[in-house]
Every structure is written in C-alpha cells, then in structure tokens.
Design a protein around this nucleic acid. Structure first.
Lengths: 339, 339
DNA sequence: ATTGGCACTCGGAACGCCCGAGTGCCAATT
DNA sequence: AATTGGCACTCGGGCGTTCCGAGTGCCAAT
C-alpha cells in the first residue's frame, strides 16, 4: 500500500513541517525536494497517506500535517538518530566534567540537555532501589534521637531522624553502626530487606528495641518506599513556540511537569540503559500532554540507574533530539560510574 | 496634594483592577463603591492621580490602570496584610507537619505556597552560612579517598569527595573526625574558618597533609562558597493569566525563574525573619520581570535562615498574598526550630 | 469644591470582500 | 497502470470600513 515514494513523501512532509511549522502542500513539496514527479502525483500520494491516517489537513484547502501515527512511522522507519557534532561532544564532556557532587551532576545534566535540545529537560536522580550502599552512618543527636544517613555508591545521601524507645549510649550506637555496615555496605539496596532481617537478634537484649526502631526506619523509608526524585530545566523553551504548538495555553503542560508522579512514569520507567524511547502525542496517557512528545533514555552502565530525557511539542526534531539525549545519557552513565 | 478621597479612589482603582483585570473608569467606580460623589468629581481626582503618576491610561478614552508607583502606595499605605482563615491555618499546619526531612519540608512548603497564593512560589534552603554544624562525618572510601559529610542543625546535608595526598588509616581518620567535631559541632558555620584554622597543628606530622586536604575542602566548598539552593513550584499559575498580564509571552519570566542567581537575589537577600518585602514591577532590576511583583519574607526564629515567597503578575492580590507568605514563613520557621 | 451636560476620542467588534494556496477530479499522455 | 496538466472549487486569513460605547476633558452652573 505504501510504496517507497509515499514514504519519501511522508518524510518530506514531516521534515518540512518541523522546520516551517506550516501545513505543507504538494507544490512546495516538489519545490523543496527532488522528488522527480509533479505536484499532481504528490497529491495522489498524499490522499493515500491521509487515507491511512499518517497525515491530516487542519481544514479543507490547506496543506497536510503529520498525525501522531505519521510521526511514529517517521521515527521508527524514516529517520536515524543523528550523532552530535564534535564540538557538541566536547562541550558536554567539559561541562559535565566539572561537577563536584551528585547534585551538581544532575543539575548540570538537566541544564545541558535543555540547552542542547531547546526543549524541557528532565533528569531522574539515580533510583535508590537500583543503587548500592556505600555507607550507613548513625549520628547521635540526643539520648533518644538518632540521625540515620544513608550514602549510596552513586552519591545520593538520604537522611531520617529516628526517635528511640529508650536512651542509647554512644558505645551501643557504635556497635549498631558496625553491624549495619557489615551487613549492607556494598550491597544492593534491594537486597537490604532480607539481609537486615535478622540483625536485631545479634545485639544485646537491652539495645534490641532501639535497633528495631532504627532498622524499621531504614527499611520503610529507604528501601520499601524509596523516594524517587526528578529535576527539570528549560521550561522557558515551552513558551518559545507555545502559541504555535499548543492548542490553548501551555498551562496543562506546565501542570503535568509539576507532578512528580507523571514525570516518573514518563522518564523513570526505564530498565536498560542505551535504548532511546520516544512517546508521541496520544501515546502519552496523560490529558495535558496530548500534543507533546517525550524522548527518554536510561543512564547507567548496563542496568539503568535512572532515566532522563526531554519533553517538547510533537513538532520536534526527532533525530537531533534523540542524538542529544543518547549522548548525554552515555556521558552521565560514565561519570557516575567513575565518581 | 493627595487628600483622603483621592487615596480612597486609588485604593478602589487598585482593588477593582486586580479583581476585574480591566481598566477602571469613573462611572463604574462610583457604582461599585460608596464614594458619595459624582463621576465628574472622580474624574478630577483621577486626573490629579494621573498627574502624580499613580495611575495611567492604556490609551486615550480608556479607564485607568495603576502604575508601579500606584501599587507601591497601595501596598505601603492603603492596605494591610490579610490574615488567613482558620481553615487555611489548619491546612498549613497539617500539611507541613507531615514532613519527614528537610527536603520534604522545603518541597511541601513551596507547593503549599503556590497553592495558597495561586502564584509561582519560591523557597530557599536554609542558608549554609547561617546554619550551625550538627555533625561532620568523614567516611573512608579507599586508602586515599574520603567522603566528607556535613550535617547542619536545619537538616541540610552536604557532601564532597576528597582525594588525599597520601594513604590514611581508619584510626587516623577517626582521630581527625573527633578533632573536627570537637571544634565545630554546634558552632555557626560562619565561625568555622577561624575555629578550624589551627587544626592541622594539633595532629601528628604524618597525617598533617591529609588533614589540610580535608580541611581545605571543607572550608572552600562549604564555608567560603556555600551552595545556596532554591526550589520552585506553581509555574503553571503563570500561564493562567498569561495573555492578560504579560506583554508578549511568559517566556522571559520563565527564563528568569530558571536562573538561580536571580531567584537568590529576589528571595535570598533577607536578614530578619517576619518582615514582608514587596518588590513591584520596575523595582525589580531584572529585564524579564518588569511586569511582575515579588512578595518575600525570611523564615527562621530571629535571624532568618533563608527566604521564601512568591512571584506573580503586578496585578496581584497583595494583602492576601502577603498574608499567606507571612503565615507560611512563620510555620516553616517553627518547624525547622523543632526538627 | 462639586456637579451635570456635552462634544470628542478611539479601541475593538462586526461585516464584507478578495486573494491565493491548496485541493480533488478528470481527461490526456506515456 | 501510473503520471500529468488543466480546471473548478474551497476556505482561512488579511484588509478596509463601519459602528458602537465606554470613557474622557472641559465648562458653565450650583
């Protein structure tokens, strides 16, 4: 049904529409591309493409615009990820290289991504559940209050204050600290539940209630319900083409961006690193994001530590954006592995 | 020059314009307010107010709109901070009460503030320089790498990895940890520079280079150039009245909101808690924010730990917004003092 | 000092008009 | 069967015109 030329026409339509933001007609298509046929022929092809649902006209007597389905076909079969230029690669390297800690890495990454793609960038902190424990510190605040500080191999630091059922000496705390670290240091956080299960049994009876209190805080808040965090940048980029690309206002988009839950679903559901995912328009199951697209990837060495990517209007330079997201994801993976 | 009735007219203009978003004319003014005089009289007063620069007409034959100067007079002399309703107070209390750590307090606060005021909310993390040290932890990552973790009384946790000039044993590190904490625990971070200055002299010569390395990291990154952080929420609120309140697009506003430096200048320059500051339109020395206003306050017990507030269009409910900002700042101060 | 009267201004909504890009269809051509 | 030139048709959007009314400034009267 769709011969090569029709596909070529679709590609041309997508490319032209992305760059001009105007419905593209048969005449301008043959002018701007070497298709070797007349406008009338293109019109026939366009009618076929419209029949199949790849393109649509905003109104009669207007040019054609790609539909969700059209963009999807374009991304899947008509384009390839566009590698970054050498200058861009070097810029990424030097910009991310200067980071001093995890917060800094994440914030630099998100700003970089926003600047490279001219879209809204989102970066998830390395997921706690996929990190391992570097160190677990217990700090005595008072007789009956202890600060639990968990540090992961990716540099995340999580802390909670625990109110103890009974006073605890510095020595007993020291002992607990040793026991905890012996159990979990270097281990995956997801293993922690089983590893720590029998910990209270080892300590002397008087300390046991305190050990349990601390343990339950660690397990509940850090292991069972780990807090996932995301950071974003470049929201101003939405306003650039707002009137053109978003039906009424950009309000619903901004609202969606404020909901961590939504962002986590869009960018956090990654399992393997390296793969670039693209979600287009209606494929995104969120009301306010029906006219946006999301390009996301996991970062990390083999298993993904977290997700990152960008969100922008459907009318987006997919090859370029995918290239930028891929490149940034790779560098971030590297950097986190080193640090 | 400005008798009582003229001031009353100005107040009425501001109130009407804020609620209707339309230039207000002499006729509708006497209709909506009990001024006891005729439209013609009001017109004379308006001419005087315009002469003095408190109001302006968008174009001939239109109603009047308050100028920056008009809003300023309104805020300074014609309005008072509006206390929150009991329900609102209770909502704040219960919402902020559930926070589990500093991150949570800050994020809840900023969302709460955005929701109460329907504006963009900004909250600064407690400034490092105004916090005191709760604990300084040194974690040995390898023979020559140490992780420095600083925990403040407000719950902020800062961390840096230090590469050591020579290997360091666990015992030596323990010794250093003790010395550091003895010096600075409970002390103000701003005092740290002088307090820590002679620390290396106390340690055995072999460890001294390492002590200096750790010390310099602590001083440089945490004391001399402390990282100030801000969080924002409610950017979607900008889009609500975007077309009405912002000349072209909201883009420059969104851009300004992405610059930490700008936000810190607007919200971080607070010295005392409790005072509510209002900056209106042109008073804000930033290009993109000429048609916005900022309501900010410091939070903390007596000296401010940090700043918070909201940013919105100049056409804003100042009394209500100031009331919300004040109430939230107070609660946050309390909560941080407890935790 | 206040007020009613009055002429004047001007932005914006409503209307009609026309242009041109773009389409679909069809008969002719290869 | 695919391609093409020709042609009538559609319709959104730009443009000029008209019209309305809210609002103003000024002035003479109170």
């Amino acid at each position: 049904m769709l011969d090569d030329r029709k596909l070529e026409v679709l590609r041309a339509i997508v490319e032209d529409y992305v760059s001009t933001n105007e419905p593209v007609g048969s005449k301008s298509l043959v002018d701007r591309h070497q298709l070797g046929v007349s406008p009338a022929t293109i019109r026939n092809d366009m009618a076929a493409l419209e029949e199949e649902g790849y393109i649509a006209q905003p109104h009669t007597s207007a040019g054609r615009v790609p539909t969700d389905k059209g963009y999807r076909l374009f991304v899947d079969r008509l384009s390839s990820v566009k590698p970054l230029s050498g200058a861009e690669r070097r810029a990424i390297e030097s910009f991310l290289g200067g980071a001093i800690d995890l917060d800094d890495v994440v914030h630099r990454t998100v700003r970089l991504l926003a600047q490279l793609t001219h879209q809204v960038a989102v970066v998830q902190y390395p997921s706690l559940s996929r990190s391992s424990v570097r160190h677990l510190e217990l700090v005595r605040l008072s007789d009956t209050r202890v600060l639990v500080v968990l540090i992961t191999d990716t540099g995340r630091v999580e802390q909670r204050v625990v109110d103890l059922p009974s006073p605890l000496t510095e020595e007993a705390l020291s002992d607990l600290r040793g026991r905890f670290n012996a159990k979990v240091a270097g281990r995956h956080l997801s293993e922690a539940t089983s590893l720590l299960g029998d910990l209270p049994e080892g300590v002397v009876p008087e300390v046991r209630p305190n050990a349990i209190a601390i343990l339950s805080t660690v397990l509940e808040t850090l292991v069972d319900h780990p807090e996932e965090r995301v950071v974003l940048a470049g929201t101003a980029n939405l306003a650039r083409s707002a009137a053109l690309d978003f039906p009424g206002t950009i309000r619903p988009v901004l609202e969606a961006l404020e909901e961590q839950v939504v962002l986590l679903r869009l960018f956090g559901e990654v399992t393997d690193a390296q793969t670039i995912r693209v979600s287009i328009g209606g494929e995104i199951l969120h009301e306010g994001l029906q006219s946006t697209s999301v390009v996301s990837a996991g970062y990390g060495l083999q298993t993904a530590l977290g997700g990152l990517g960008v969100l922008g209007p459907m009318r987006m330079d997919y090859p370029g954006t995918m290239g930028a997201v891929r490149a940034v994801a790779r560098y971030v993976g590297q950097i986190l592995a080193e640090g």
